[in-house]
């Protein structure tokens, strides 16, 4: 119901008063329509054209998509985002939940500890990447440090290995976001109805059973939010790769986001770049649309 229906003076002033809110909203809406949805349509269209270094408008049907899916580099990027995404989501959730439960035991200096767990979220990956590069570099990082402590056969050179490098990305990404997931679960824990727990406790249930049977099932909404946020971050990951490996060794740590960038802007295969961006959008939409839909409907 519009609030403006309460008074009824006729005429132009009335029209203006009715239209004013929409007029105020319209510049933002227009910007988003053009720069989000217009651009999505444009890029989608480009994915069916023979664009190379510059956009061109000769249609080539599904050719870019068939070429995209036959490219080994894209294959690697997709596999990587699946490995990276699933490990990243899984470890962040497990670690986040564990830390939230530990921190929820009436801990002294809880606020201080929470601040430490969360600060990586405030930093750019380009910043923390400098420290991670050191840590992962066998010449001066963890490997060198552990060897200098006397364990001379210690090996940690994942970042140099095409099979293992993707896991170093997981390590760094988990460090960056797990504190945030902890905060989400902690908020969930604070909202739990504890009557059932009290009853179960009187019946002699152990702490472990209380968490497993009563608390964790009640955290479903927090799990949902964490999954959506993490999945969406995994698909969009870009600075992470640039800062840590630049996609290497070789193309071992390329993700769709870096693939799109290099095919579009350095290899001048804009049609294929646009096709890969379209696939990324589809993947994100498949996750975000149902989530936003249910959130908006619930709020009514």
């Amino acid at each position: 119901m519009s609030v403006s229906e309460t008074s009824g003076r006729a005429g132009r002033a009335d029209w203006l008063r009715d239209a004013l809110p929409k007029l105020v909203l319209s510049p933002s809406f227009a910007l988003v329509l053009i720069f989000v949805y217009g651009f999505i349509v444009f890029t989608f269209y480009l994915s069916f054209t023979d664009s190379r270094i510059l956009p061109s408008f000769g249609l080539v049907g599904w050719q870019n998509y068939t070429r995209l899916f036959s490219l080994r580099a894209w294959d690697i990027a997709v596999k990587n985002v699946l490995i990276f995404g699933s490990l990243y989501i899984l470890i962040c959730c497990v670690l986040g939940l564990a830390l939230a439960i530990l921190l929820d035991q009436k801990i002294r200096a809880e606020g201080f500890i929470r601040t430490i767990y969360l600060y990586p979220m405030a930093l750019s990956f380009i910043v923390t990447g400098t420290a991670w590069k050191w840590f992962l570099d066998p010449g001066i990082g963890l490997e060198a440090v552990v060897r200098s402590w006397g364990w001379t056969s210690f090996e940690f050179d994942w970042i140099k290995s095409s099979d293992m490098a993707i896991y170093t990305i997981v390590i760094a990404a988990v460090w960056q976001t797990s504190g945030f997931v902890m905060a989400m679960f902690l908020a969930g824990l604070r909202g739990i109805d504890n009557e059932v727990m009290k009853a179960a406790q009187i019946d002699g249930a152990s702490n472990w059973a209380l968490y497993r049977r009563i608390v964790i099932p009640q955290l479903r909404p927090a799990f949902m939010s964490a999954f959506v946020v993490l999945a969406h971050m995994a698909i969009k990951s870009y600075d992470l790769i640039i800062a840590l490996t630049g996609g290497g060794p070789g193309t071992a740590t390329e993700l769709p986001a870096t693939f799109m960038y290099s095919y579009t802007f350095t290899r001048n295969q804009m049609g294929i770049g646009a096709a890969s961006a379209t696939i990324m959008l589809m993947a994100i939409a498949a996750i975000m649309v149902p989530y936003l839909w249910s959130e908006l409907r619930e709020k009514k």
Binding site: T43, G273, I284
Partner: peptide
């Protein structure tokens, strides 16, 4: 929430 790769070219 869109991947910004989708808007880079235009």
């Amino acid at each position: 929430f869109i991947p910004f790769q989708m808007v880079l070219i235009p």
